[in-house]
C-alpha cells in the first residue's frame, strides 16, 4: 500500500492542461477562451506544487506565487482588452475579428442554422361565463 505518488499529481496537471487547451481551441467566446487559458495555468500550478513537495524545496511554491501575481495582471489587462473589443463589435465572438487571419486562409462562415429558441406556451384564457357583475357607484369612485 503506497500513498499517492508524484505521478498522480502530474497526471492531474496534464489533464487540466489538456482540457484547457481544448477549450481554448474550440470555444468562440473571448471570455471562455481566456478562462480556458487560466485553467491551463492551474494545471501548471498543480505540477509545480507537487514537485515542490516531493523535492522538499520551496522553489515551486515561490514560482506558483509569482504565477498567481502574473495571472492577476493578465486578467486585468485581458478584461480591459475584451471590454474594448466588445465595444467595437458589440459581441464577444472571436470570429468577428477574422480579418486578422493570414492572407491565404479561408474565412470561417457559419452555414448551419442555430436551433430555434424554445416555443413559449401560450397562457390559458378563460371563457367568460354568466352575466358580468354590476359595478356600484362607490366601488368605481374608490378605484
Amino acid at each position: 500500500m503506497t500513498p499517492v505518488g508524484l505521478q498522480s499529481y502530474l497526471v492531474l496537471g496534464a489533464i487540466l492542461f489538456g482540457l484547457g487547451a481544448i477549450g481554448f481551441l474550440a470555444r468562440r467566446n473571448l471570455i471562455l477562451m481566456f478562462l480556458s487559458a487560466e485553467m491551463m495555468v492551474q494545471g501548471v500550478a498543480v505540477n509545480l506544487l507537487a514537485f515542490s513537495r516531493f523535492r522538499g524545496n520551496l522553489g515551486g511554491q515561490v514560482l506558483t506565487l509569482f504565477m498567481i501575481t502574473v495571472a492577476a495582471c493578465e486578467a486585468a489587462i485581458a478584461l480591459a482588452l475584451i471590454l474594448m473589443l466588445y465595444r467595437r463589435r458589440k459581441s464577444l465572438d472571436v470570429s468577428l475579428w477574422q480579418e486578422l487571419r493570414e492572407p491565404d486562409q479561408d474565412a470561417v462562415i457559419d452555414e448551419e442554422p442555430l436551433p430555434l429558441p424554445p416555443m413559449e406556451e401560450p397562457s390559458p384564457r378563460l371563457t367568460p361565463a354568466g352575466p358580468a357583475p354590476q359595478k356600484r357607484e362607490e366601488e368605481v369612485s374608490h378605484v
Partner: peptide, 28 residues
C-alpha cells in the same frame, strides 16, 4: 449569444487536446 452555441473545429480541437493528454500520460 450566437458565438456560445457553436464551436470552432470541435473535432480537431478535442483530438489535439486528447493526443496531448495521451502523450503526456504515456511519458509520465
Amino acid at each position: 449569444s450566437e458565438a456560445d452555441q457553436r464551436s470552432r473545429e470541435q473535432f480537431l480541437a478535442s483530438l489535439a487536446g486528447f493526443v496531448l493528454i495521451g502523450g503526456l500520460l504515456c511519458v509520465l
